[in-house]
Nucleic acid binder design. Structure first.
Length: 495
RNA sequence: GCGGCCGUCGUCUAGCCUGGUCUAGGACGCUGGCCCCCCGAGCCAGCGGUCCCGGGUUCAAAUCCCGGCGGCCGCACCA
């Protein structure tokens, strides 16, 4: 049930991009230059503030809730890291060029398209060339022969120092976590199972970035890597608390998700272990806390042909938008792919003691696309009814907590409003605004999701009370100025 | 990267086909003033445009031609 439109992007997508540009959520990077490459975006003040609040929710609902360790790693990592992780060899597309017209093709896709033969993921270039020649696969445009076979690696390669030694911008944040695993395990005094989290930038040289924040070349990930003993993945008492929680699972071959408790999913064998069930529950709950309605969330199981090269079990958390279902979190069981790879490559033994024996931990990850998540949340709460734009964000995700507005731009109301602004602005993200009629200002702040407006009027001058006007209902109440900090903390509180 | 459509103030757009009257017009927004107002009020003034970039044709290019860059959709890839 894709909601994808036949023509153009959705109206909501367009309105959101427009709002983002006009009000400072995000804008394309290098904008004023005509050579600005696609796939790079700058967050403006409101976007940066909202992202900060989103990450704070992530810390609250995942990192702190589950006692994870959070690190902040380098974005440039050595070539060896990516040899070990497999990205150097496997994070590639096989490419060939038409010798006549220069058209560029993905060889595996072209073979499948022309011959119907399925090309396995890890077939090497020579074999692909052989298949091309045996089946006389040619350029679809001019019929020319294919030449110049090579692998296009989606990592950005960079040169370090004057010698320009090969290194790469990380294509996923988690490699730092794997490389640092043993030191963290030893120094932070953890026992399996435990998780390490990281929020930061990743870089992928996408062939064709599209759709604003949804596919970028430089993007934020918030990743969680859970290290566990594969023999004891069901010895996991923490999961008991979520056993009756209903996951919205969509298995391979199904077209709709179905709600099923963790307990039931485990007994039917849909999920490999209690540990995996627990983390799937946590991530689904996180998006519910972010305000996405449950029926717009699904955990879709990936088939063999869809999974990343390192995954042995994979679920994507997806959210339904006006553009269709968008993948926000890859939930992958990476097995021992990463620690095993780094152990072989570095010679550093990665095995740890658990349950009386040395084992190489397996990894289950929750790899979240932050920018995509922000898009989906913004779109979800964008209300365009009645010719007005109201961004009905949960208060704890709103970039601005409150606006402080003198009813009219005249003394002593302006000074009084400024006084309240001075009083609040170190504890809250508040703005002062006396420009334009009060109605216009209410609308202005509705558009960017400010949940409450604090209006200073003539009565304020008499009894030190202000009008509180709520974004979602437009209802007003009167409160004492001295009660504002306490009341605001309540209105902005997490659920 | 291919194919289709497209690119004019912050945003939306008129003009492009039929080159000159365009030193590019309007609306919304924004700024200042009057007004002093509890849900986008009104009036006045103002700011704001490399017409995506580069080249070509022409006496003359937003307009015609070529190349590039970018956007959207489709193919594909993915957080």
């Amino acid at each position: 049930m894709q909601l994808r439109q036949d023509k153009g992007v959705s109206r909501k997508f367009e309105e959101l991009i427009k709002l983002a540009l006009e009000r400072g959520f995000f804008t394309s990077a290098s904008e004023i230059y005509s050579d600005a490459p696609a796939g790079f975006w700058d967050y403006g003040p409101l976007g940066a503030a909202m992202k900060r609040k989103f990450i704070e929710l992530w810390r609250r609902e995942l990192v702190r809730r589950d006692c994870m360790l959070e690190i902040d790693g380098a974005q440039i990592l050595s070539k060896s890291v990516f040899k070990a992780s497999g990205h150097l060899d496997s994070f590639v597309d096989p490419i060939a060029r038409c010798s006549k017209c220069g058209a560029i093709y993905r060889v595996d896709k072209l073979i499948e398209e022309r011959t119907g033969l399925h090309v396995p993921e890890r077939l090497n270039l020579d074999e692909m060339r052989r298949i091309v020649e045996e089946n006389d696969v040619r350029c679809t445009r001019c019929g020319g022969k294919l030449t110049g076979y090579y692998y296009f690696n989606m990592m950005f390669r960079i040169g370090i120092g004057v010698a320009e030694a090969d290194a790469y911008l990380r294509p996923e944040t988690c490699q730092n976590i794997f490389v640092d695993f043993l030191r963290l395990y030893k120094t932070m005094r953890r026992k399996l199972p435990f998780a390490i989290a990281q929020y930061g930038k990743s870089f992928r040289n996408e062939i064709s970035p599209r759709q604003g924040l949804l596919r970028m070349r430089e993007f934020y990930q918030a990743e969680i890597e859970v290290f566990f003993n594969p023999n004891r993945a069901n010895d996991f008492p923490k999961a008991d608390a979520v056993m009756d929680y209903e996951l919205r699972l969509q298995q391979v071959g199904e077209s709709e998700p179905s709600e099923i408790t963790c307990r039931e999913a485990l007994s039917q064998g849909l999920i490999s272990s209690k540990l995996v069930a627990y983390y799937l529950a946590l991530i689904q709950q996180f998006y519910e806390k972010a305000g996405i309605p449950k029926e717009r969330i699904r955990l879709r199981q990936l088939g063999e042909d869809e999974k990343a090269f390192y995954a042995v079990e994979a679920w994507d958390l997806e959210v339904e938008t006006s553009l269709g279902w968008i993948e926000l979190v890859a939930c992958n069981n990476r097995g021992d792919h990463d620690l095993g790879g780094h152990q072989r490559m570095s010679g550093q033994e990665m095995e740890v003691l658990d349950d009386g024996q040395k084992i190489l931990p397996h990894v289950f990850e929750l790899s979240m696309g932050v920018d995509r998540s922000l898009y989906c949340i913004l779109e979800n709460f964008l209300d365009l009814e009645n010719g007005k734009t109201i961004l009905r964000l949960p208060p704890y995700l709103a970039p601005i907590d409150a606006a402080i507005l003198p009813l009219v731009s005249r003394e002593p109301l302006t000074s009084k409003a400024m006084e309240i602004y001075d009083e609040l602005r170190r504890d809250f993200d508040v703005e002062y605004d006396d420009s334009g009629s009060i109605g216009r200002r209410y609308m202005r702040y509705d558009e960017v999701g400010v949940p409450i407006c604090i209006t200073v009027d003539y009565q304020t001058m008499e009894d030190d009370t202000v009008t509180i006007r709520f974004r979602d209902s437009a209802h007003q109440i009167r409160v004492d100025v001295s009660d504002l900090p306490c009341l605001m903390r309540g209105w902005l509180a997490y659920p």
